[in-house]
Simulated assay, not measured.
Amino acid sequence: MTASATGTMGHARDKLAGVLLIALSASAFGAMAIFARFAYAAGADVYGLLAVRFLLAAIAMGFVMRARGISLPPWRRVLALAAMGGIGYVSQSYCFFTALNYAQASLVALLLYLYPLFVTILAAVFLKEHLTTSTVIALVLCSVGAGLTVGGGEGSSLGIALGVAAAVIYSIYIVVGARVTAGVNAIATTTVICTAAA
Rank of each mutant, 00 (worst) to 15 (best):
residue 92 Q to H: 13
residue 96 F to C: 08
residue 155 G to I: 14
residue 1 M to H: 12
residue 69 G to Y: 11
residue 34 I to E: 04
residue 173 Y to W: 12
residue 56 L to Y: 01
residue 135 T to L: 08
residue 181 T to H: 05
residue 7 G to N: 14
residue 73 P to H: 07
residue 167 A to R: 03
residue 146 A to P: 02
residue 82 A to S: 14
residue 165 A to W: 06
residue 1 M to Q: 09
residue 98 T to K: 11
residue 33 A to P: 00
residue 113 Y to D: 07
residue 11 H to C: 05
residue 186 A to M: 11
residue 10 G to T: 09
residue 165 A to M: 11
residue 78 V to N: 09
residue 150 V to A: 13
residue 66 R to L: 00
residue 18 G to R: 05
residue 168 V to P: 07
residue 53 R to Q: 11
residue 65 M to G: 00
residue 59 I to P: 03
residue 104 Q to F: 09
residue 23 A to F: 12
residue 110 L to W: 10
residue 34 I to D: 02
residue 168 V to N: 03
residue 194 C to M: 15
residue 7 G to S: 14
residue 57 A to G: 07
residue 173 Y to R: 07
residue 125 V to R: 09
residue 70 I to R: 04
residue 37 R to P: 00
residue 193 I to K: 01
residue 148 L to A: 09
residue 98 T to S: 14
residue 112 L to S: 08
residue 104 Q to P: 02
residue 11 H to F: 12
residue 101 N to S: 12
residue 120 T to P: 00
residue 26 A to E: 01
residue 26 A to H: 04
residue 169 I to Y: 02
residue 34 I to Q: 03
residue 75 W to N: 09
residue 127 L to V: 04
residue 185 N to Y: 08
residue 39 A to L: 03
residue 33 A to D: 00
residue 133 T to Y: 02
residue 144 V to Q: 04
residue 45 D to V: 04
residue 31 A to T: 06
residue 72 L to K: 06
residue 24 L to S: 13
residue 100 L to C: 05
residue 188 A to S: 14
residue 184 V to Y: 01
residue 172 I to D: 00
residue 84 M to L: 15
residue 134 S to Q: 10
residue 84 M to S: 09
residue 149 T to D: 01
residue 52 V to I: 13
residue 197 A to F: 04
residue 86 G to H: 06
residue 197 A to L: 05
residue 19 V to C: 08
residue 49 L to H: 04
residue 178 A to D: 13
residue 71 S to I: 12
residue 81 L to H: 06
residue 100 L to P: 01
residue 85 G to D: 08
residue 161 A to W: 07
residue 102 Y to D: 15
residue 12 A to H: 09
residue 5 A to E: 15
residue 78 V to Q: 12
residue 75 W to E: 09
residue 46 V to Y: 07
residue 154 E to W: 08
residue 47 Y to L: 12
residue 192 V to W: 03
residue 153 G to F: 04
residue 80 A to L: 15
residue 90 V to T: 11
residue 169 I to R: 01
residue 137 I to D: 03
residue 39 A to E: 01
residue 52 V to H: 05
residue 42 A to Y: 02
residue 128 K to L: 10
residue 179 R to M: 09
residue 3 A to D: 15
residue 29 F to H: 10
residue 109 A to G: 14
residue 99 A to L: 07
residue 142 C to G: 11
